[in-house]
C-alpha cells in the first residue's frame, strides 16, 4: 500500500506504508509524530525528513558518517533509558542540516542526531564532547577540523 502526503516544497509525495517513520516524541521543538525520508537530491547525500501530516514541516538530513569521518555517538543516559536504544548502527543515523546559499556555510547538528530504525525514530542527545551543534559540512582542507 502506498501513502500520498502533501508537501509545500514538493507537492504530492507518494511513499510506501512501510516508509512511514514514527517519532514517538517528535523532534525537539518541532513535534511531528510521523515522518518519511525522501530523496529529492539523488547523489548528493542529502535527504529530506518530511512530516507526513504537516505539508510545511521538513528538514534536510545527511548521514553523519558520509561527511564526518570522526563522528562518534554517545547517547545520553536519559535518552538510553527513554528510548531503550543503547547503540545505533551507522546506517540508522542521521543529522539535521542547516541549509544556506553558500555551501561552505551549511552546517549539520552532530549534537542531536536522529536514530531511525524499524520504522521508529528518535532524536537523541550526543554527549560526545566533540559533537558540534553547527559542524560545517564542507570545509576547505586547510581549515578542516574534522580531517585532522
Amino acid at each position: 500500500m502506498s501513502v500520498t502526503f502533501q508537501s509545500i516544497r514538493f507537492g504530492a509525495v507518494e511513499i510506501q506504508d512501510e516508509d512511514v517513520i514514527e517519532f514517538p516524541f517528535g523532534l525537539i521543538g518541532l513535534g511531528g509524530l510521523r515522518y518519511a525520508l525522501i530523496d529529492r537530491n539523488p547523489g548528493t547525500g542529502f535527504l529530506w525528513l518530511h512530516a507526513v501530516d504537516d505539508p510545511a514541516l521538513a528538514l534536510p538530513v545527511v548521514s553523519p558518517y558520509q561527511f564526518f569521518a570522526t563522528f562518534s555517538l554517545q547517547i545520553a543516559a536519559e535518552d538510553r533509558e527513554r528510548t531503550g536504544i543503547e547503540n545505533a548502527a551507522p546506517e540508522h543515523l542521521y543529522v539535521t542540516v542547516r541549509a544556506t546559499p553558500n555551501p561552505l556555510d551549511i552546517t549539520a547538528n552532530l549534537r542531536a542526531p536522529l536514530i531511525i530504525a524499524e520504522r521508529l525514530g528518535y532524536q537523541v542527545i550526543n554527549t560526545n564532547e566533540d559533537a558540534e551543534l553547527q559542524a560545517p559540512l564542507f570545509t576547505l582542507p586547510t581549515q578542516s577540523q574534522i580531517a585532522s
Partner: peptide
C-alpha cells in the same frame, strides 16, 4: 537548530556534490 533546518526551501541544498577541493573527507 531544528527550526533553522526546517526553514530550508526546497532548492536550498546543493544540486550536486560540491567541487572536490571543497569537500570534507
Amino acid at each position: 537548530e531544528n527550526r533553522a533546518a526546517a526553514a530550508a526551501h526546497a532548492d536550498a541544498l546543493p544540486a550536486e556534490p560540491p567541487a572536490p577541493e571543497q569537500t570534507s573527507p
